[in-house]
């Protein structure tokens, strides 16, 4: 048996413990890639005001811990869907084109998630198509959260992945718009 000397305790304290603490940084964000079918079904139960603006998210959204806006995974998936489903054709990289800008702080139907979800799911008059037959509910939530994050005026710890292309607009994880004005 080794005699445990005082200097060995020192080594343990100086090297091993900090290393263990650093290991804590390796935690991967939980990625919910598969909503249970009943949950996915319930994600469609958005209650909007009669005028179609503003409302409350489905109860299951709160039960899940409001995942979409606070998870980098969901925001990254939303960013991917933004390109995949042709949003850029009308909204460019958020600046808008034939469709309205998504980063100028002006929301025709309000900036809350239930409204954005409904806008993507059902479409809006004036050219916004409905995506209910092209995307799953889970995907629409991801995309809605990404769109909200793009034009958000408050900072957030969660941000989508970085683009490899040259930036045409401030990154999604920039400081809130008040300190980095948008054009």
């Amino acid at each position: 048996m080794d005699r445990v000397g005082g200097w060995k305790d020192g080594v343990v304290l100086a090297v091993v413990l900090p290393a263990l603490v650093l290991l804590g940084g390796c935690r991967l964000e939980d990625r919910e890639t598969r909503p249970d079918p009943p949950v996915a079904q319930a994600l469609g139960q958005v209650a909007l005001m009669p005028n179609g603006i503003g409302g409350s998210p489905p109860e299951v959204y709160a039960a899940l811990g409001r995942p979409y806006r606070e998870s980098a995974f969901h925001l990254s998936q939303g960013k991917r869907l933004y390109e995949w489903f042709g949003c850029q054709a009308c909204h460019a990289d958020g600046q808008g084109g034939s469709g309205p800008s998504l980063i100028d702080g002006w929301w025709n139907y309000g900036p809350d998630l239930p409204t954005l979800y409904t806008t993507i799911h059902d479409g809006r008059p004036g050219g916004m198509p409905a995506f209910r037959d092209r995307m799953t509910r889970d995907q629409i939530w991801q995309l809605a959260a990404y769109v909200q994050a793009m034009g958000a005026y408050t900072g957030s710890l969660a941000a989508p992945g970085r683009s490899d292309r040259p930036q045409t607009r401030p990154a999604e994880n920039r400081l809130p718009a008040a300190s980095a004005p948008l054009r």
């Binding site: 990625r31 890639t33 598969r34 909503p35 079918p37 996915a40 079904q41 998936q77 799953t136 889970d138």
Partner: peptide, 16 residues
């Protein structure tokens, strides 16, 4: 029926 159980994280969603 369930692409996310067979290959978790892939970009094919579970379509009901």
């Amino acid at each position: 029926a369930d692409p996310q159980t067979i290959k978790p994280g892939n970009n094919m969603p579970m379509v009901p």
